[in-house]
Design a protein around this nucleic acid. Structure first.
Lengths: 168, 168
DNA sequence: TTTACTGCAAATATTTTGCAATATC
DNA sequence: GATATTGCAAAATATTTGCAGTAAA
């Protein structure tokens, strides 16, 4: 293992995320490589959604080099370990996010921004939900629409169109 | 326009789907090509989900040739016309389905089968749902889990493992 | 007749794979 | 020391694009 104090500290820390990943690696007879922890550390410090490209650039920004294949490989492991989830929203490239409490995704179809909202009522509703001949493991609710920022901009440009039309 | 009686009949029919697509094409000054209607006809006769690959093969099976680019192009138009939707479920390639009444997708993570269920309670819940600073247009609920067929198979193979262990 | 659309092939984008070098166990 | 993992480059996959020919308006 190369000496990278940050990552060594992270591995040595009793961080539950490190513990969970260790358990997964142990259970599958997999090795604990510096690259895997460097990626884990980065992933767990991102609050929202990110693409593979963005993740790799963040890691490189940390001054640590990992190949694209290793990023894909480790992200796959983190998904199997149920620590990370992949989302593909309409018209966008794949994005990842760490698994936390269930939440709804609000996706603006104009600017592509994704907002997460936690809704107790909805969570309760889904928890009570049972399906016929189907054993549910987890769910994703994607709500597509327009965020307030884009709505404002659209309204403005619509108004200026009306203004122009008036002037003619 | 090449003479293909089936498609001509379809175009001539007062099918609401044809009308809706015509309106979209007219509104955008786009041409009414045989290829577009051939694809529309096929799409509207598929009940479940399909990939681009599958759609093209079905069309070829109908004895009509359309290039891959035209399939992508027309599918894009149908999505803009709000007649078709694209879904990317975890670990699978993009699938399309015609837009009908809102429904939940149950996705088996073992066999990949996708089942649609309509749930009045859920629909009512979502219709009442309002989000802060976000104007909702449509939503997708994906529920991942295990279908009963796979559950049975898994149970059986688990049992036979236990049997084997007993014999030792 | 004009030009939007199609088909083909080539380009691009994203993800996967083969293999030699290397680090973990 | 044995071998799982890495990095690189090449391959595979999915989607987009440029352009010449064709067909819709």
């Amino acid at each position: 293992m190369k000496t990278d104090p940050n990552i060594e500290d992270f591995v040595a820390s009793n961080n539950p995320v490190v513990r969970k990943f260790n358990e997964y690696l142990d259970a599958h007879g997999m090795r604990k490589t510096t690259e895997r922890y460097a990626i884990l550390q980065r992933v767990m410090n991102i609050s929202g959604h990110f693409t593979i490209e963005e993740l790799q650039q963040l890691i490189e920004g940390d001054g640590f080099h990992v190949s694209r294949s290793t990023v894909y490989n480790t992200v796959e492991l983190l998904m199997e370990a149920k620590m990370l989830r992949r989302h593909v929203f309409e018209g966008m490239q794949a994005q990842y996010e760490r698994i936390t409490l269930p939440h709804t995704h609000l996706i603006c179809t104009t600017c592509g921004k994704v907002k997460e909202v936690r809704d107790q009522n909805f969570a309760a509703f889904m928890n009570a939900q049972r399906f016929n001949a189907f054993n549910s493991d987890h769910y994703c609710l994607y709500v597509y629409g327009t965020c307030s920022t884009c709505a404002r901009k659209l309204k403005r440009s619509h108004q200026s169109t009306k203004e122009k039309n008036k002037k003619r």
